[in-house]
């Protein structure tokens, strides 16, 4: 009979238990107690481990995400700084280039002011014909707007002689450097009583000079390394008093009355940007030997040796 009743009213009984049991539990657990009940212990045992694990998981994922966000922000900031750095580096480089250009132009302008005896026009170096050892053997100039430029005219800078215009076509001019084997410049060493000619060797950054002493009394003053060689103006191409180079090797080769020295050029052709073309120069007829048309940049006639312009310097 009980079994039939239980089967018939099973759902009702279940409902009553499900509704009454919590109320009883609430009544029991709602009172002030000191000890933990069996139900509470059981619930704690069921829920605590997973609570701890989930707390660790959430904390770990949270830390990972925070680290990722921080790293992303750092990476973004880093990119921004790199971008700014590139811009600043570019600006600094541009400023340095402009400052160097300005200094060169100021020197050229100063030189033009000092050189009253001949007229010059500025030209920009637009190309360098280089040898396989990175030695410049020819320059190309942009002579647009430079009136009076003709073939054979001297090309100089405030540092000294560069060469002469070999070919001219429209706004473009090719310059044969003084180191070219075909080049010849009448030269002297001020205060040493010698005259001679400087010839190119067509190799490396060097040329040679053959000097002859003007009189025996001057032989007591030998030429040495570092002595600057200047133009005399007698070749009617290069004005007098322009530095060609300096003696790079002290021991000369003797050939009859001539002493041949190895010279290093005064001008660094590889870094030339602007030059002056000497126009309207009619030669230094009647000028005394070694008397400069322009003030030489090293009036003492002896210069400090530039290691980059010595024959033994690496290319």
């Amino acid at each position: 009979m009980w079994r039939d009743l239980l089967t018939r009213y099973r759902q009702t009984l279940l409902l009553i238990v499900a509704l009454v049991a919590p109320v009883a539990s609430m009544y029991f657990h709602g009172k002030a107690r000191k000890e933990t009940s069996v139900i509470e212990r059981g619930l704690l045992a069921v829920t605590s481990p997973v609570t701890r694990v989930s707390h660790d998981v959430v904390a770990g994922v949270g830390d990972l995400l925070s680290a990722y966000v921080v790293l992303t922000l750092v990476e973004e900031r880093n990119r921004e700084l790199e971008r700014e750095n590139k811009i600043l580096l570019g600006e600094a480089l541009r400023s340095r280039t402009q400052a160097a250009e300005l200094a060169r132009i100021k020197q050229l302008c100063g030189f033009r002011e000092r050189a009253k005896e001949f007229e010059t026009v500025p030209a920009r170096v637009v190309g360098r014909d280089v040898s396989q050892f990175f030695q410049v053997v020819r320059l190309r100039l942009d002579v647009e707007g430079a009136a009076g430029v003709r073939e054979g005219q001297a090309v100089i800078t405030h540092d000294g002689v560069v060469g002469r215009i070999e070919k001219l076509s429209g706004n473009w001019a090719d310059v044969m450097l003084v180191t070219d084997a075909r080049s010849q410049v009448h030269a002297t060493v001020p205060g040493k009583g010698v005259v001679g000619s400087v010839r190119g060797r067509g190799k490396r950054n060097e040329f040679s000079a053959q000097f002859v002493h003007l009189d025996d009394a001057e032989r007591g003053m030998p030429l040495g390394v570092g002595d600057a060689v200047y133009t005399t103006g007698h070749d009617r191409v290069f004005p007098a008093g322009l530095e060609i180079g300096h003696i790079a090797e002290g021991a000369p080769t003797r050939s009859g009355p001539y002493y041949e020295f190895v010279l290093a050029p005064a001008v660094s052709y590889a870094t030339l940007e602007e030059v002056l073309v000497v126009v309207n120069y009619r030669g230094a007829m009647g000028e005394s030997e070694g008397k400069p048309a322009a003030e030489p940049s090293k009036p003492s006639g002896r210069r400090t040796i530039d290691p980059a312009n010595t024959p033994d310097a690496p290319p």
Partner: peptide, 30 residues
């Protein structure tokens, strides 16, 4: 159905009671 629904809700409520022991056990079950 009513029987399984009540039984399952009872278990779910009890779990919630387990996770929030600030209230007397049985509140969330009820």
């Amino acid at each position: 159905e009513t029987g399984p629904a009540v039984l399952m809700a009872f278990v779910v409520g009890l779990l919630k009671d387990g996770f929030s022991l600030s209230a007397p056990v049985g509140v969330y079950t009820e």
